[in-house]
Amino acid sequence: MVEFPLIEVKNVTKKYKNNLVLDDISLDIPTGRIFGIIGESGCGKTTLLNLLIGFLKPTKGAIYFQSKDVSKRRRRIEKNFGFAAQIPSFYPQLTIKENLDYFGTLYGLEKADIKSRTKELLRLVGLENKGEVLGRQLSAGMQRRLDIACSLIHQPKVLILDEPTQDLDPMLRNEILKLIQKINKESGVSVIITSHILGEIDRLCNIIAIIKDGKISKLNSPSELEEEYSKNKIIIIETVSADYNKILPGLKKEKNITKIEEYGGRLLISAKDPKKAFNRIFTIVNKEKEILSYAKLSKPSLELVFENIMGEA
């Protein structure tokens, strides 16, 4: 059986006056998955999300939700989306329950539905005992959970999360990511998530779209992306002196070496042909009378894959 995409983005261009933000983007977002959108800050991720929910209208092209044009049927379609923006959007002076009750009413839910849904969501996001607590009294992680709960009050088919872990510490970040997975698994809701922290996408998403210069640069699963770029293995070296000023000029002259980074007292060297590069590195180190204390050939992380993609001309 053919699976129709939940959302189809067809040749969408978005311009703000003369500023081209998205340039002829096309992609399909499947049902029930976690779809990641990655890109540098200001690359148009948030604009794309706003286009998906019909909040913005494309300059060119069209977006379809279950084959219906989003921009033409916004009022009907927006009920199918839950949106959590970069900054949690709720009333800090209202309690968690009051916030959910308020937004539930605005989505046209019956009082009884709101009550049962609130109970269900508070359990889902782990705020069961905090219903009467004011929004402003919650910790950053809890505020993010409340924001997600508000986005889900009307049982949307798609949950859109715009950089949901922004400004959170690693522990809270993990907490939120686990919550997103849980929501996706338990309620079957499709999730579209944007981030510039690639570790999140690596663990969370089924499909990743990388936006570069207003275009979809890559669209694949994380493993496939990693595989595609794994041939660009990196060489990690460390010298006894940990002073790389002598060897760096020689390494930079090598055409095979594409990138050199100093990180944690070590050099991370990317090369087109790692084996050849390894030999040249040894030669240069010896020539400069330095002693290698550590050397390793490693697969790149998704961060590096992303950096490679972004660095590609």
Partner: peptide, 13 residues
Amino acid sequence: KGRAYFRNFITPT
């Protein structure tokens, strides 16, 4: 200027 303005905006009200 409130945080919740955006969420109000996107509700079908």
